Simulated scan of single mutants.
Amino acid sequence: MLQPILHQLNSKNIVLASSSPRRKQILGNINLKFDTAKSNFEENLDKGSFSSPIEYVRETAKQKTLEVVERLFPSESLPDLLIGADTIVTKEDNIFEKPSSKDHAIEMITSLSGSSHKVLTAVVLVTPKSSDVFRGRVSLDDRLDITQFEEVSEVFMPDLPADIIKSYVETGEAMDKAGGYGIQAIGGSLISGIHGDYFNVMGFPLHRFCVELRNICKL
Score class of each variant (00 low, 15 high):
H104N: 15
V155T: 04
A162E: 14
V138Q: 07
I165E: 04
T127S: 14
S139I: 01
V124D: 01
P161V: 04
S101C: 05
S153D: 11
A174M: 06
E92C: 03
V126G: 09
M157D: 03
T90L: 08
I165P: 03
D145P: 00
E173F: 02
K166F: 09
A162T: 11
S153M: 06
E154P: 01
S116L: 01
L120P: 04
L125M: 12
L125R: 09
F149A: 05
I106Q: 11
F149Y: 15
I109Q: 08
T90S: 12
T110G: 03
V133W: 03
V133K: 12
S131F: 00
F96H: 08
A105H: 11
E154Q: 14
A122W: 00
G136F: 12
M157E: 10
K166E: 13
K166G: 04
R143E: 01
E150W: 00
I109L: 15
T90E: 05
E170Q: 13
T127C: 11
R137V: 13
S130H: 08
V126I: 15
V138P: 02
F134L: 10
F134G: 02
S111R: 09
E107A: 12
V89I: 12
V119Q: 09
G172I: 05
D163K: 08
V138D: 03
R143C: 03
F134H: 10
I95Q: 05
D103S: 13
S100K: 15
R135F: 05
T147H: 08
D103I: 08
H117C: 08
V89S: 04
A174N: 06
L144D: 13
D103C: 02
D142V: 02
S100T: 13
G136Q: 10
H117P: 06
A122G: 15
V123Q: 06
F134W: 11
I164E: 13
A174P: 07
